[in-house]
Design a binder for these strands. Structure first.
Lengths: 109, 109
DNA sequence: ACTATATTTAACCATATGGTTAAATATAGT
DNA sequence: ACTATATTTAACCATATGGTTAAATATAGT
């Protein structure tokens, strides 16, 4: 039972939690391309890829636009940055605490 | 149907995809503490918290040790670093590409 | 030994995820 | 108009997630 609407970071991290979706993002990081091209390296059906793309799109990590009968996909950098930012913030806290501890131990041998 | 064993990054990102778990990690970033203390800010049952902790632990983002009848939880920095590293790598690619494009546009007005 | 506290496990339920095949939709190309 | 190609939607199934309450387990404290 989901009680709260799903926040942006939930969707972003959730989208990053599957190897095929990370593979798709990795491919997109080197330039936009079509759905067929994104699907090629993975051995799942076209509908499966379509679902992964929807999850990435809903998470705001990627966008699609039509080009003839193809769809061209493009990474969206902002949400990736937000996800990274969250982790970074935690690690900053954590490291600051460890530094303080280290300093304390040095000063109180 | 999950066909491949779940990789470390799958578990790590999956674990980060819930606000309660991110809240728990945020608390842990400022120092280790007990399960009861971690549960306090969240209005779900104790078993729900216990499940979240298990997910965090299986993802390698946190560890638990016994202290009397309590369990003391502690963040595990390494896996956090890996998750951040993955995103960072993608963004590096992406930004390099954008920089190259910008340069190209500047040189070919 | 008895009782209270901390935490997990069991059993249950609803929804989300991750896959499939078959069918629908839209455009390209003749 | 006809056919091929690209992609999505529908219907289905199994497993994972996220919650609940009730019970079990383990230790603390008298």
């Amino acid at each position: 039972m989901v009680k709260y609407s799903r926040y942006r970071l939930d969707l972003a991290f959730g989208a990053l939690a599957h190897p095929i979706r990370r593979g798709i993002l990795a491919r997109l990081a080197s330039g936009e391309t079509t759905v067929a091209e994104l699907a090629r390296p993975h051995k799942v059906s076209a509908p499966a890829i379509s679902k992964h793309l929807r999850i990435l799109e809903q998470a705001g990590l990627m966008s699609r636009r039509k080009r003839g009968r193809e769809r061209v996909c493009r990474i969206e950098a902002e949400r990736m940055k937000e996800a990274q930012g969250w982790i970074e913030g935690q690690r900053a806290l954590w490291n600051r605490r460890l530094d303080a501890l280290e300093k304390y131990l040095k000063e109180n041998p």
